[in-house]
Amino acid sequence: MERSEKMFFKNIIANFKKYKFLLKQLVSRDFKVKYKRSVLGVAWSLLNPLLTMAVLAIVFSQMFKFSVPGVNYLVYLLTGLVFFNYFSEATNLAMGSVTSNATLISKVYIPKYIFPLSKTLFVGINFLLTLIPLYIIILVTGDPAEGTRCTITWLHLLLPFAFLCLFLFTTGLGMLLSTIAVFFRDIFYIFGILISLWMYLTPIMYDLSIIPESLHVIFKLNPLYWFIDFARQIILYNQFPTGNCWLWCALSAVVVFIIGLVVFKKKQDKFIYYV
């Protein structure tokens, strides 16, 4: 058994080299198919987040008059939102990635982890594109007189760490969900509800300071809180992220990724009988 574990990781690396091209093709297929029949095409991947952000910005800062003291609320809101949107879209697509490729799985041998991974990568590229409108908003909104205009410092170079943790966490959860989905289709509905609950339990639109101190511990069990907090400390407060924050980001990302990988590996040979 131990030998097969070793073989598994060796195989993953060899497989990865061999199937890099497939991964690339699957990601680019998703792109092509997504925009194929629209007039504006790939421009939508920039326009779409920009317009969605505009809607939310108007709703929350103008209609509901939400704010977080001392910072540019728009940037506060959108930072959280960009992270959460990645998480929500990527987990949803990854969850269905194995079941929707049933014909392929039963006809050709392909390492199956490619499917959830290609989805989290595909949404990842979209995520990187949404950083462009986000940075435009960071640069042009806020009032310099009130000190709410954000400045970009070298600390921004640390942000990829938060992206990487978010990616690992999402991929791990995606593998786990795609495995569950093979045996238990109800997960699609259950997770749909869970994710909207998750969204409200993550401080995206509000700040943790409005929640009673005694409940903070519950909010801090949420890895997404830490990823977003990491980014906000840098973007909004020009602050080197706290040690606590580094630790929780890395720990939750790695642990969830490994759980996802192990569960996926244990069950993958049974997929073919159920998809």
């Binding site: 199937y19 091209f21 497939l22 690339k24 093709q25 699957l26 297929r29 092509k32 198919v33 194929k36 029949r37 014909t103 392929l104 006809k107 050709v108 392909i110």
Partner: peptide
């Protein structure tokens, strides 16, 4: 088995070849 019906023949050649 690996064809995507929305893609062109050219794109499918690359996709299917990568599947194989």
């Amino acid at each position: 088995a690996g064809f995507d019906m929305d893609l062109t023949a050219r794109e499918n050649i690359f996709l299917n070849a990568s599947v194989l």
